[in-house]
Nucleic acid binder design. Structure first.
Lengths: 144, 144
DNA sequence: CTGCTTATTTTGAATGAGTCAAGATAAGAT
DNA sequence: ATCTTATCTTGACTCATTCAAAATAAGCAG
């Protein structure tokens, strides 16, 4: 999944061109799980210094809409991306620094997916975010 | 809860002054569940035209930190606020228009609160967001 | 392989929710 | 009633993200 070969398939299937920026962006997302846009841009620049930030934004948006990557944007923090998808995992977010970690669904096959009252909404996903303080920030807090 | 009297208690308990802007903001949040900041500002202005947007931002932030109101900010949408708190309810969010509705926790006492692996995070809350399309947008989509 | 069409990219400016900071005001203690 | 200082007003500013026009290159046709 999400190998350079695989992505070519996905893009072509969607009638999208396979371009250097797109391949570079996808590789960067795969190599830097939970990275924010700026990190992705830096990573892409290491190999392709001339790729513009706009191209990165466009690629990230495209991949997100194609379902190849997933955007995560917790309260008050900027967007982050990950290429691990389709396995219904969730995230722990640090209230202080915004750092993320993956959490497998603890209670089997998405028990929360069925809302008690859906208010007429057509629900297609249940997202769970665990809020807390990461180990690093806990240590920082102790130091003062 | 959250009556004008009650809030006076809360503010004083936290050594905070009871000011017109603060009382107005809290009333506005109570009267407009899930309103965004601009809606709150407009509502406040109806009674107190001279209150600045900064005072509203400050009040919202203060109340949020005191746990009197709750901030909600789904992917790609601006912040919204609600004064219904402490009952562990969740939200359905419309992917298209960003509208919100309340959903009671379907599976009793927060079953998702315990992550399978907390990665050393000190977790204090599990937030569940149901994603879908609201009735209005479903109708719009049919019309084309 | 060469040229052509047009989807993508580049470039550089613009947007807008939210924040910062200095001086003015008013809550509430004395 | 006066004073102290938390809070508010004003207005500029930030910065992630988006917009738009001109330049480029993906990949199809010949």
């Amino acid at each position: 999944m999400t190998s350079t070969d695989g992505i070519e398939q996905v893009l072509k299937a969607a009638s999208m061109r396979v371009t250097q920026p797109r391949v570079a962006v996808l590789a960067a997302v795969a190599q830097h799980p939970h990275a924010d846009t700026e990190t992705i841009i830096s990573a892409v620049h290491r190999e392709h210094p001339k790729v513009s930030h706009q191209a990165v934004y466009d690629s990230l948006k495209l991949f997100t809409s194609l379902g190849v990557i997933r955007q995560i944007q917790p309260q008050g923090h900027i967007a982050r991306y990950e290429s691990r998808i389709g396995d219904n995992h969730h995230h722990v977010v640090c209230r202080q620094c915004g750092n993320l970690a993956d959490v497998d669904c603890s209670v089997g096959e998405s028990p929360c997916l069925h809302a008690s009252d859906d208010h007429g909404f057509k629900i297609d996903e249940a997202e769970v975010i665990y809020w807390g303080i990461c180990p690093e920030c806990q240590a920082k807090d102790l130091d003062g």
